[in-house]
Design a protein around this nucleic acid. Structure first.
Lengths: 161, 161
DNA sequence: TTGAGATAGTTCGACGATGGAAGTATTTTC
DNA sequence: GAAAATACTTCCATCGTCGAACTATCTCAA
């Protein structure tokens, strides 16, 4: 591996970190406009994604995806409900299960919040050919798997004190 | 734009979102091993980056980069000091200014926390040629600028209630 | 069929991160 | 030299989060 190549690797790692921080800032700033917290916005994105797949998440699903405790999940859902962004429904299959349905307001708000970001990403993507976009998608897929593997290995190799 | 191309754009946006969430999880999980909070870890990364450039950040620098209020910044620095990760120094040029110096422990801990992640990213990068890495770097640079532009435009077009 | 054990979600109370106001120390401006 | 501005800390209140306890419901074994 040439010195130039090694520097490209490190440069890429820094850029990936900066990208992650940039999206962090986007979520915090846009959420602040609506008086919501970052967790609420992340949850809403997950709920809307579930709906897109034709299913509704349970409180337990959200707790798992967000890595929140059950009480924290309840409080988060209370906040979303207070903003009329979700409705709780008892599952008919298992009365213990609470299913979460996004309201029309939620979809409108999601568009308001993430629309400008999505539009910008589309603009950036238009500078690239189909082949290049496929390369980018492949890299990101591998990077995502890599991050989660690094996390799992870290946790496995460092027992909690 | 062909239908296939449009789908690649959207697929890429979802992957970017998933990458951002994956690094979020990495920071929270690894920080939990050390009993620290995500803000503390982000701050430490910034402090170490400053040192790498040969300068020390002030409390005001950190407040600006982390978008924290002055009291929250003080509390965060108190936590880092409690873990012996930083030392406060009064600037000789302006006695109002507090400069933040990372300790040896901070560098060790940074390596422990971010080393596995950096290694994984290097492994992923090794699957690509120098030309491809340059393409990736260019895309990420543009994506970062795009996210920040989207944020600034959103804030400018939505006055705070 | 019945009771014990397990599961899903909520309530309660405590902890800790965060921010506005107020305060202290220092520098800049007029 | 005094007032205004700047940098950071302290104080106090708000709010997100979690462990324990609780309520409701389902599953399983006797």
């Amino acid at each position: 591996m040439s010195p130039m190549h090694a520097r490209d690797d490190q440069h890429l790692a820094v850029l990936l970190q900066q990208f992650s921080q940039a999206t962090d800032r986007y979520i915090e700033f846009t959420g602040a406009q609506f008086g919501t917290h970052r967790t609420d916005m992340n949850a809403l994105a997950i709920i809307v994604n579930f709906e897109r797949s034709g299913t509704l998440p349970s409180a337990k699903d959200l707790s798992a995806e967000l890595h929140l405790s059950a009480p924290a999940t309840t409080a988060m859902l209370d906040r979303l409900a207070r903003f009329d962004l979700i409705e709780r429904e008892r599952s008919t299959l298992d009365r213990r299960v609470v299913l979460i349905r996004p309201t029309t307001d939620a979809r409108t708000m999601g568009k308001r919040m993430f629309g400008p970001l999505a539009k910008k990403m589309m603009e950036v993507s238009q500078n690239y050919s189909a082949q290049e976009l496929e390369l980018l998608a492949r890299f990101l897929s591998e990077a995502i798997v890599g991050v989660d593997e690094a996390r799992e290995e870290f946790v496995a190799s460092s027992p909690r004190n």
